[in-house]
Nucleic acid binder design. Sequence first.
RNA 1: CGGGGUGUAGCGCAGCUUGGUUAGCGCGCCUGCUUUGGGAGCAGGAGGCCGGGAGUUCGAAUCUCCCCACCCCGACCA
Length: 592
Amino acid sequence: MQRMSNLFLRTLRDDPSDAEVQSHRLLVRAGYIRRAAPGGFSWLPLGYEVFRNVERIVREEMNAAGFQEVHFPALLPIEPYQATNRYEEYGPNLFRLQDRHGADFLLAPTHEEMFTLTVKDLYSSYRDLPLVIYQIQTKFRDEARPRAGLLRTREFSMKDSYSFDLDDAGLQASYDAHRAAYIKLFERLELPYVIVSALSGAMGGSASEEFLAPLPVGEDTFIRCTSCDYAANVEAVHTPVPEPRSLDGLPAAMVHDTPKTPTIATLVACVNSDPALRHPDRDWTAADTLKNVVVNIKHPDGTVEPLAVGIEGHREVDMKRLGAQVEPAEVEPFSEDDFKQHPSLKKGYIGPGVLGTNNESGIRYLLDPRIVDGTQWITGADQYNQHVLHLTAGRDFVADGTIEAAEVLDGDTCPNCGSDVEIARGIEIGHIFQLGTKYAEALELTVRDENDQPITPTMGSYGVGVSRCLAAIAEATLDDSGLCWPREIAPADLHVIIAGKDGSPQVAAADELTASLEAAGLRVLLDDRSKASLGVKFKDAELIGVPTIVVVGRGIANDDNPTIEVKDRKTGEREDIALDSIVEHLVSICRP
RNA sequence: CGGGGUGUAGCGCAGCUUGGUUAGCGCGCCUGCUUUGGGAGCAGGAGGCCGGGAGUUCGAAUCUCCCCACCCCGACCA
């Protein structure tokens, strides 16, 4: 039992000024956490209780799946990370430090290297595999911008597991086992989730899916179908490619003067207002135009190559999608100086006529996949103040290939079923990766097969953000009055409020009730504060968010039929329960 | 790293434009009395390097410069 009269807790009446997102505000106001460092939080008793509950559930589900728990240091030497090149690839997000001898160390952002090395250390036979081991550990990442309370911190708790298999089928089985375990886990946490296909990014490897909690405060943008269950990270969305159209009978391309139209908006206004250029049946829209955007692609070896991307005029280039397509190269803006280097590019009037490796600019030209043969476009004529109408793909121009770099819009076509997709935001709560042999090869992990030949195991890695999950659960369940935890996560099963003065019968009754409830195996938070007014106790109970609130008050003074009030935090429904059946009643609520 | 905003008591804020008593207010905290079914009342009290440093000035929370921290947007990001 926890008595609030001596609980290390101070609830706040006002919102902390530095907290913007709801979960952050309420976790601070309810006395669960305190900011202690940039991107770092201290856990207070109630918060740590909830944290341990989330951690326990994660652990139980991992163990239930047959995975074995280990624990590694967070402070690590850099050599293994140099061997996989991640010491460089992680860049400024890696915390680096030196010991007293000047030797380099890092604070681990994730542990692929150490798990791989430990397997190498202990195992050497195919008979030992498959293997899945995991840990729940504090991770460190020097985030450029910690934000949103517990949702993005520089020090956070994460469950990370690693699978080691002999072949692709084994990896797929380990991956599927994690996927299934995560589904059970998030359902037990009562955390809504969407599984989206993702790109593996800097982790290397092939297949990868993210578990997102679909909440507006999430930082990840994803696409989901309004009809089927398709969902994907915005970087990983595939654009359905329309069928090519016939070139027969299409009007010829014509160059027209379109003065002062360097932007899509001015161009559309111009062609709609010029009687010679108007569409016979309707207004032209930005979607009738072909926008050509030039960027620089910086390769890992330092060389820079210009790249032109052709997309529908009503879309922007999505830098995340483009970046994911050209990885590991990086995208940089095309500067005024760059334009001077390429005089054939008339800024604001760039068209396919000069783009492409075989044309005047020599710049590689990639098209959005929707721009199939037979589609007609209004686009730049490569002379200032001129555009060309009816320029037809496959007839008047051919690009060097296609690229998925256009922004995804609400109402785009689902690649799975053809219905509309919508854009949503989510908090990344889990991520599963098929890594392949990148780490095993770099660290020379091999085992002997049945013919005594060395083979390289194939790996997967799988993460769940424990502290982030806690924040996501708070975010998903809170209401205007405060937090509202699922029972298994909550810091207690019951929040018992004494509505009576010191020495009143309510105090004795509450003490007796609490003892009985504890004997029945329920976790009780008892508000026995004598100085706090009843209003404060009610407000604090709702703020703290224990799922069931029990009020020992005037009802017990009824000699004929003494009662105790039971209130459901989420619904607000209250009910007076006879004193002689209260324990049984509460057990049935808490342990259905 | 770019843009914007904010730093004054444990928390939330006013004061700064136009420099000038002892830097205020609400909540919280301490003492006493009253109160007890929805953030109680009265009375008394404690608590401030006004983010840090340098400068201007007879005098700086207030003006100038530099730095730091935090929040938001973007870049970044398993």
